[in-house]
Design a protein around this nucleic acid. Structure first.
Lengths: 378, 378
DNA sequence: TCTATTACGCAACAGCGTTGCTGTATTCTC
DNA sequence: GAGAATACAGCAACGCTGTTGCGTAATAGA
């Protein structure tokens, strides 16, 4: 725990984060409703808005007349005031996206990675990717907040070190964040793919998305967790190894060494061409997750899942209905990811946005990323 | 989201909570080490300490000479400056404890509850219990911070409503917190038994206990979760139904309706007199938990478990060693609960202490519990 | 006794949200 | 069309947080 103390700076960042979160809902908003939603006084909201307008994040967007009295000033987010780059490091490809402050994907690209690529290979590909993404977008100049990297673990989010990328040689205890920051000249976040993915959903869906899991089926089965309004990474940044939870104690041996893991059962069903059975197995795991951590939202994602999304979604919804006691008030919303194949890369980008413009936790207040873009005079 | 905004009051409570957390470590501490640990300036620590001393929570405890210069003033917690009552509502008994601010159990008592007791019965027993606990302790007068209730769910922590106490009639949608506050005249918290239990461990063990699970075997199997430095309750206060996660898809039918739940497998092994098998089943579930949420501490508790604690502890430790990949750095500490049978009741009491003297989260800042005990002049 | 050293705390300050009140733009009423 | 009513916006003073600058107190060693 480094510097957990809170000062006035935390207060400022926290309340600004709240207002930006409201602004991200994309409908124009007014001072009074921010005051009502946050508990701040209208005057305080004015001060916060003035700061955000000065940073260019928010702009007045019109007036609303509602009967007698001075019209209400409306504000809205300026999505193009900030951008972030996200990359998804997969086994053979690098997916690179540019997102705006709202979390919309502006540009997306996929490039191949050499077999058994090295850290050097990846850094070069990332540098190229950033150049390509921003080449045709002069409005991104100086507004790239940072670069997020989403990849398989095990890795250490806090230290930015890849411990052992699964099924990749050359990737043992690589200080990837540090190296990438040198090469790219931008702040870098490193996180597990599934955690990045769930951040994408959370950033786009707002505060109502408080306890949720992103279930990802794509060369493996994982779960990104969003608990109590923030990403849950666990004690060693290793949360989400959902595919390696046992569902059948005497089941077949899994690559991880255990028997009857969700992933090995699921993959065998897929290999048998029995998608409904695969979906039911996944669904049993999802119900286990609900029983354990009581999530309110399940988001389904991953290429292998989305290919059969009807089967999976139906199986999960049915299992919840049938197997969760008191499913009447223990409501769980099951949806498909809104970002498709971009979700990991986009989520990695949004982790950067979340760090600078999200609602901070006291302990997470690190050295502030210095970005002082003043609103241009016209 | 009610009043999530943060003001100066939050800052004050937050930093005071940090200092109290350090003070709870029970060794005398000095200004400089608090400053180093929190990032506050020494002068700010002085101001915080002055406020805490005025409230009576902290007192100077001596001087330390360490060479040249003015001696360092040492401070320590005043454990008897605040107390809290906790009750554990079990199927046939009510366990009542009084804890001090440090989290030590001062007095403990068990009274029987009538079969199929009603809310009225419970309220009467609780009122009697509070009287009995405090009768011989005049120093508790006016220093009882509140009463915590730990019981089986489903229940709603935020609203203080028991939805359906498992295996109890008369307990459907009972606004227990409100009723108890009327009867007892004290602030009341209502929470699931396992969540209260894990709070006990967290309050006593300090900030290093950040991602942890309390595994409880006692007329059922449950898990209390402490994630990212706070209790995790989930979207509907229903997290921790660990006993109803499936470990054997084609296993025997459980009372909950699913097949092959951890609990039904475990209880059958116990019924067969095969404790090692029961322990291995529990251990498989614990490894699933580690894979899912990556906890760093496992605490074992519950009468049925502690009766065979060697078997259970060994089985869990062995399973972690054998089944968690890279167990070399993915370290998990496995311990037994330090509070024995009192853990739920004591944890319920500590939830009260945590609410008033713990480190708050911005969103959790509710209406402050009004307790203004000034330090008595001697 | 003097000096270096270390800890403590007063006083002034910067910056956060709050409070009180004045200014302003609009609709409603006559 | 003029004045009243209404509602929003924002300036100025304020209270409270942690911070900074610097003087004071207490000790060990020369």
């Amino acid at each position: 725990m480094r510097n957990p103390a809170a000062g006035l700076g935390f207060l400022r960042d926290y309340n600004e984060g709240l207002v930006v979160a409201i602004a991200r809902d994309s409908v124009p908003f007014d001072r009074a409703s921010v005051a009502a939603a946050t508990g701040l006084t209208p005057q305080a909201v004015s001060k916060v808005l003035a700061r955000l307008i000065k940073q260019g994040l928010i702009a007045p967007s019109g007036l609303r007349r509602q009967g007698a009295g001075k019209p209400t000033t409306l504000y809205e987010l300026v999505p193009t005031s900030r951008f972030a780059v996200g990359v998804h490091v997969a086994r053979r490809t690098l997916r690179t996206v540019l997102t705006d402050l709202r979390g919309d994907v502006v540009t997306s690209a996929v490039t191949p990675l050499p077999p058994d690529f090295t850290p050097q290979d990846l850094l070069r590909a990332m540098a190229d990717g950033v150049v390509h993404l921003t080449r045709d977008r002069p409005d991104t100049s100086g507004r790239i907040t940072g670069v997020g990297i989403g990849m398989v673990g095990p890795l250490d989010h806090a230290l930015g070190i890849v411990r052992d990328a699964h099924r990749l040689r050359h990737w043992h205890d690589v200080p990837l964040r540090e190296r990438a920051e040198e090469v790219l000249g931008l702040p870098v976040h490193l996180d597990k793919d599934v955690t990045a993915g769930v951040t994408a959903e959370a950033w786009r869906r707002g505060p109502a998305f408080d306890d949720a899991a992103l279930i990802m089926v794509e060369s493996g089965v994982g779960a990104g967790l969003w608990l109590d309004g923030r990403a849950h990474r666990g004690a060693h940044t290793n949360a989400g190894e959902f595919g390696h939870t046992v569902l059948q104690l005497d089941g077949p041996r899994c690559a991880c060494g255990r028997h009857g893991c969700l992933e090995v059962l699921h993959d065998r069903a897929v290999a048998d061409g029995d998608i409904p059975r695969a979906a039911r197995i996944l669904a049993a795991g999802v119900v286990n997750l609900i029983q354990t951590i009581d999530i309110g939202h399940v988001v389904l994602a991953g290429a292998d899942l989305l290919r059969h999304h009807r089967s999976y979604r139906a199986a999960v919804a049915d299992a919840i209905e049938a197997e969760v006691p008191r499913a009447d008030w223990l409501t769980v919303e099951v949806t498909l990811s809104s970002l498709g194949a971009d979700i990991i890369a986009a989520g990695a980008a949004m982790q950067i946005l979340d760090a600078s413009y999200g609602v901070p936790s006291p302990a997470s207040v690190g050295p502030a990323i210095p970005m002082q873009i003043e609103q241009q005079a016209r």
